[in-house]
Design a protein around this nucleic acid. Structure first.
Lengths: 344, 344
DNA sequence: GCCGGTTGCGTCAACGTTGACGTAGGAGGA
DNA sequence: TCCTCCTACGTCAACGTTGACGCAACCGGC
């Protein structure tokens, strides 16, 4: 068993020799193509079983006219992030239905790294890629797209043309969140957001502004904190906000980790039942906290399914105009977003 | 740009023609092999750039003597599970350092599905696989291993020989958790576990038994609930336990979702500060709950790194005897596991 | 008997790349 | 001067598979 590794993988030639037919006939049998009699089919199948033959998809895709590798690439920011991994899972499920496997990579939101991974995927001749574009210029993505690689962007739209993309209702749902807070009587609603280079951050901020405007509230610039990359920065920002002379009575945290950071501070100050909080993006156990955290929940599996659907359609030759699919998010009320401003 | 998709990818032959050299020379230049003069190197590089040539790794690995595809397979239970995705990320990081990409799949703990995915990976001639074995017989894995495919199992050991594996200190850490509860004075400590077919469940149960024995406590069989596959079953089981005439004063929940289910029930009954709880496996926000949840934390990145290290060593021809690496877990005290039995 | 069509195979070359090997020309030594 | 060695290329075949095509045998119809 130890020297098993040295054994050469059997090929069609080996099967052909054993079954006393040509390799072409083996190919026909393996691929279920017509042109082989029942007796020959049986003989070839038996020979393949005996030898433990398994087709070599790389050789096959090299020779086939359609050049399919039955493999797609997925390039997300961080595969260990729950949002990303849920997305990956949804894409994977859909891919499996077509016998397609997924080459997965984390770009760390680094353009250089994303470019390198893209090259790696291209070298393996993947049939298409699903990408969460790294911040900043998308030249590498654009180049790849212009070469003709089927591509779908998720979470963030392309800065170039002719490319499908799937996002959620960042702006509308943010506005809805702010309007709900305003309806409760809040007039000092803070915005805490992620890096401003991210399209999603910008959209959510715009939604915040629209919400304020629609509720007839004036923007207090000192209540806006952005570029909070990670929970630690969010904590600091939250502390600063709460130390203002006229602190906010409600927080809209426009990203996952920011929500966690803010929650931590509210809790540390014992304010979790006095200051309202709505976060963008759901997270596990949000309902188990006290109070439960009201969030805008994205339909992550829905986004993944849509992205997969689009990429496979393109791979199958769909040449209809590019689509920007928007998968609706929903406000999930759990308590923290239903706190009215305190009377003091 | 739209008909760009029809453009054929340039090959070495195209580059060779433009640079007026042979394809072999192009090969030499692309791979940085000696045997090409500076002037020719420059000419070839220029031609490759002009044409936008990119090497075809599938053709290359077909022809090369080492047969490497620079791709490994990762087959976990559910890529959207935080444990699995953290593991994937760790493996991916290590793989990237060697220019290796990862084909990822979810087996859903279904042997049939795992077998099919394994065949898919084999068809793509991956250099090795990292697998979380699905419950029950591991025949498909064993067969693949016996063919010589480098393989590392994670989280659960193989039921067959000659295969590396990486697990955590399931038994020891479980015993430690039970001993801590016993030291606080608990005499009725319940065990709530996942499917008994899982090796980890068995190990954790054994650790529980060892803990009881070491503390001089007698096992009360009615306090042991297993096969709790998912949070819902865990809730039911917890309710049943709490309704006993002599209910447990402490719970040891031997899996993530089981912990969540039990927490939910304790909370619903207002017992979260009266009944002690220690869970196996950490989860996000465990520290934000009230009380914080005491858990046994696995070193997930550590496990992933170790698995990656092993698989790449095997791929590189390491033939030393198979290893069962054990990455230590640690008890993280947050409050729920430090509750003494109530005096009533 | 001849013709056209179908069935059931086989032969050959090619996909893009690289290993084995060949060779021309120059450098260097005896 | 000749022989050897090295450098810098080129030629050829092969990796495992499949598309294009060929061809013999058989069928049915007239």
């Amino acid at each position: 068993m130890d020297q098993a590794g040295e054994r050469r993988e059997p090929t069609m030639r080996d099967v052909a020799a054993l079954a006393k037919v040509s390799t072409k006939t083996v190919s026909r049998v393996i691929n279920g193509l017509p042109g082989a009699g029942q007796e020959v089919v049986d003989r070839v199948r038996a020979a393949a079983r005996t030898l433990g033959y398994r087709p070599n998809l790389t050789a096959s895709s090299l020779r086939r006219s359609d050049r399919r590798s039955a493999t797609i690439g997925v390039l997300f920011e961080d595969l260990s992030n729950p949002f990303d991994s849920a997305l990956l899972r949804a894409v994977e499920d859909r891919a499996r239905q077509g016998g397609v496997l997924v080459l997965a990579g984390s770009s760390e939101d680094d353009r250089t790294l994303q470019g390198e991974l893209l090259v790696s995927l291209a070298a393996r001749r993947v049939d298409g890629v699903v990408v969460m574009a790294a911040g900043g210029h998308q030249d590498a993505l654009q180049q790849e797209r212009e070469r003709g690689t089927p591509m779908v962007l998720v979470d963030r739209p392309p800065t170039f043309g002719s490319t499908d993309c799937v996002t959620t209702t960042n702006r509308d749902s943010s506005r809805e969140a702010v309007l709900q807070l305003a309806a409760l009587g809040h007039r000092d609603i803070a915005f805490l957001g992620d890096r401003r280079t991210l399209w999603t951050s910008q959209e959510r901020y715009t939604g915040y502004l629209e919400g304020l405007a629609q509720a007839g509230l004036t923007l207090r610039e000192e209540l806006v904190r952005t570029d909070l990359h990670g929970a630690d920065l969010a904590e600091t920002a939250t502390n600063t906000l709460l130390d203002l002379d006229r602190p906010p009575t409600a927080l809209f945290t426009a990203q996952n980790l920011v929500t966690v950071g803010s929650m931590r501070v509210l809790r540390a100050r014992g304010l979790q039942r006095r200051i309202a909080l709505i976060g963008f993006d759901d997270f596990p156990l949000a309902d188990m906290l006290e109070p439960g955290i009201t969030v805008v929940r994205q339909d992550v599996p829905g986004i993944g399914r849509k992205a997969a659907e689009l990429i496979f359609a393109r791979i199958d030759g769909d040449t209809s105009p590019p689509v920007h699919a928007v998968v609706p998010a929903a406000l999930v009320r759990r308590g923290s977003g239903e706190i009215a401003p305190s009377a003091d």
